[in-house]
């Protein structure tokens, strides 16, 4: 495993820890999209089905179990925690997830490496992950609640994507025969969506800064 891949995994892990800590410490999930969190749970479950069939490494297994359990933990907080669930922006978080899930199902059925249950589900998870952040970005733009912790979460997720691109480049040049165009194209789309968010974030941050200057 190269340093980019490891750093990418760690920022991904940190992003989830930051989100959980924010929810636990502030007893609030204001500005967090439950729809995005549910999409991530679907992504992890459909991708990590291979936990039952193939063993890659202890690291791999531990990380997969962590991603699945932490995503369900966040969903539980947002849906069922007595105090946290009341802070959920239900009226603002209205993105129609079917617009993302249904095209991803069709695309996974059409474009995959092998037409088998596990492989199609894996491909579906790759496609879905690339767009799963959209409800979160729409919610951030709507509520304009650029809460530091929520934006840290989104920033860390973006850093994870960028590091994964470096990891792919590194592996492409160092491992003969390493090539994975489904993951590359979805990952590039995903990173582009984050760049769009960064642009929006910087613009609103600069606007806020200008507003707070003494007149």
């Amino acid at each position: 495993m190269n340093i980019f891949r490891f750093a990418g995994d760690m920022t991904h892990l940190c992003s989830i820890v930051v989100l959980l800590l924010k929810i636990e410490a502030t007893k609030s999930c204001a500005g967090v999209s439950l729809r995005t969190q549910e999409l991530y749970a679907v992504v992890f479950v459909s991708r990590y089905l291979d936990l039952f069939f193939t063993f890659i490494s202890v690291y791999n297994t531990v990380m997969k179990v962590f991603f699945i359990t932490s995503s369900f933990c966040i969903i539980w907080y947002m849906r069922h925690h007595r105090i946290v669930s009341q802070t959920y922006d239900r009226e603002q978080d209205t993105f129609r997830v079917a617009f993302l899930v249904v095209p991803c199902i069709f695309l996974a059925l059409l474009v995959n490496h092998e037409f088998s249950m596990v492989e199609v589900l894996w491909t579906f998870s790759i496609y879905l992950e690339s767009v799963a952040i959209l409800p979160q970005l729409i919610l951030l733009q709507r509520t304009f609640n650029v809460d530091t912790l929520t934006s840290n979460y989104v920033f860390l997720l973006g850093a994870y994507r960028a590091l994964y691109i470096l990891n792919w480049l590194y592996r492409y040049f160092t491992e003969p025969g390493y090539s994975q165009w489904i993951v590359w194209s979805s990952g590039t789309l995903q990173t582009a969506i984050y760049c769009d968010f960064f642009y929006y974030y910087v613009v609103s941050w600069r606007k806020n800064e200008r507003l707070s200057l003494p007149s």
Binding site: D50, I56, S57, N60, M63, E119, W122, S179, Q180, V183
Partner: peptide
């Protein structure tokens, strides 16, 4: 193969 290339990633 391309099928297995990404399977060790998360």
């Amino acid at each position: 193969s391309a099928k297995s290339a990404a399977k060790d990633e998360l």
